[in-house]
């Protein structure tokens, strides 16, 4: 069940994102230049500013340091966590040769573990922030729903990290079954009580992926486009 869901999620995510981009570029560009000043002199400067604005959020740092800290945490650690999950696809050879299996396990326990906790705190911060005026007054149910969904995914992930004790090879076997279109939990997972935690983690993550392109989360690509307009 969680297996089929993954395929649907990936398909909807990709198609939805492609549709969103198409939906944007299909619309005519504004004939008015909406940029503000100071404006970079050339396209190299524009590109640089775009990257800085979209990745470091200097305006947020200037405006609300606490928010900046948690937002940076959420995004950078979130990205790191995504990359960390790649270990399930296969070991990163240079690192593996250097650290060995035990070393890799320790690294992922410390790295993944702290990432999971940081994400938890960051999302809780964003969630509680929304209950406060004036943020409460501009929030819509979608905002809470997304945060709760993400919170759930993180909590389930943290549970797997700290309480389930599956070996990376089990995850790799599961991942392999997904890639070969024959989704099944390997024995070590299937026989464990924590399989429901994993199934729920996969399920909620899939839900998020499905909703992603149709929600405000499209800012993950839209911010680059819109920040480019800043220096138009």
């Amino acid at each position: 069940m969680a297996g089929v869901m993954v395929y649907v999620a990936i398909a909807v995510f990709l198609a939805g994102t492609a549709y969103k981009i198409y939906h944007w570029i299909r619309a005519p560009r504004s004939s008015v230049r909406l940029g503000m000043f100071p404006r970079p002199e050339n396209s190299f400067g524009r590109g640089l500013k775009l990257i800085k604005d979209s990745i470091v959020f200097p305006q947020v740092l200037d405006n609300d340091r606490i928010m900046w800290f948690f937002v940076i945490m959420l995004h950078i650690v979130g990205l790191g966590t995504f990359i960390g999950h790649m270990r399930m696809l296969g070991e990163f050879a240079p690192l593996y040769n250097w650290l060995g299996k035990d070393g890799m396990d320790t690294l992922s326990y410390i790295g993944g573990g702290s990432a999971g906790l940081i994400l938890l705190v960051a999302v809780l911060y964003l969630l509680f922030r929304r209950f406060k005026a004036p943020y409460r007054d501009i929030s819509v149910p979608e905002d809470y729903l997304l945060l709760l969904l993400i919170l759930l995914i993180i909590m389930l992930g943290d549970h797997l990290r700290f309480f389930a004790h599956f070996d990376v090879t089990d995850y790799q076997a599961y991942m392999k079954s997904l890639i070969t279109f024959n989704p099944a939990f390997p024995a070590a997972i299937a026989e464990s009580g924590a399989r429901w935690v994993l199934a729920s983690h996969v399920f909620t993550a899939s839900l998020l992926a499905i909703y992603f392109p149709f929600s405000k989360l499209v800012h993950f690509i839209g911010s680059f486009a819109a920040n480019l307009v800043r220096s138009d």
Binding site: Y135, D143, K216, G222
Partner: peptide, 8 residues
């Protein structure tokens, strides 16, 4: 589409 209603 992209406003996250962050309120910043």
């Amino acid at each position: 589409d992209i406003c996250t209603r962050c309120g910043l």
